[in-house]
């Protein structure tokens, strides 16, 4: 229990992943959904870094590099999504994702 190993981190990542999935499916606020996505991406990064450290070999650097790229991707995604949210808000005067009804069929 006191010896921290790979499984500890994987379980933590699974908890954060599931919290993220719950936020993604249950929030009606678009920003709330995005926060759920950020949680999942954090779970992904914990996975990568933990695998990099504990799996042995010299792959640890791969893990850290991909985690860096994931952080950048998250930033880019947030930038586009927030811009789209403000555009949505300007047009519909709300940020409730269940409110849109201009297209259907």
């Amino acid at each position: 229990m006191l010896e921290i190993g790979l499984n500890h981190y994987l379980v933590l990542a699974a908890i954060i992943f599931c919290a993220g999935v719950f936020s993604m499916v249950s929030k009606r606020n678009a920003i709330g959904v995005l926060i759920g996505v950020e949680l999942v991406l954090n779970a992904v990064n914990i996975n990568f870094v933990a695998f990099g450290k504990y799996s042995g070999g010299n792959t640890s650097i791969d893990a850290q590099v991909i985690a860096l790229f994931v952080i950048v991707l998250a930033a880019a995604e947030a930038a586009v999504a927030v811009a789209i949210c403000t555009n949505y808000y300007r047009n519909l005067n709300t940020i409730d994702i269940d409110r849109g009804d201009a297209v259907s069929g």
Binding site: F17, V33, V37, E77, N91, I97
Partner: peptide, 24 residues
């Protein structure tokens, strides 16, 4: 365009979710 604003939000959110799950 109201419709464009709406569908792009839907598109972006779907995309962000599926990309996150793909990364997992």
């Amino acid at each position: 365009d109201r419709a464009a604003a709406e569908v792009s939000l839907k598109y972006a959110i779907f995309g962000a979710i599926s990309a996150a799950i793909m990364l997992y």
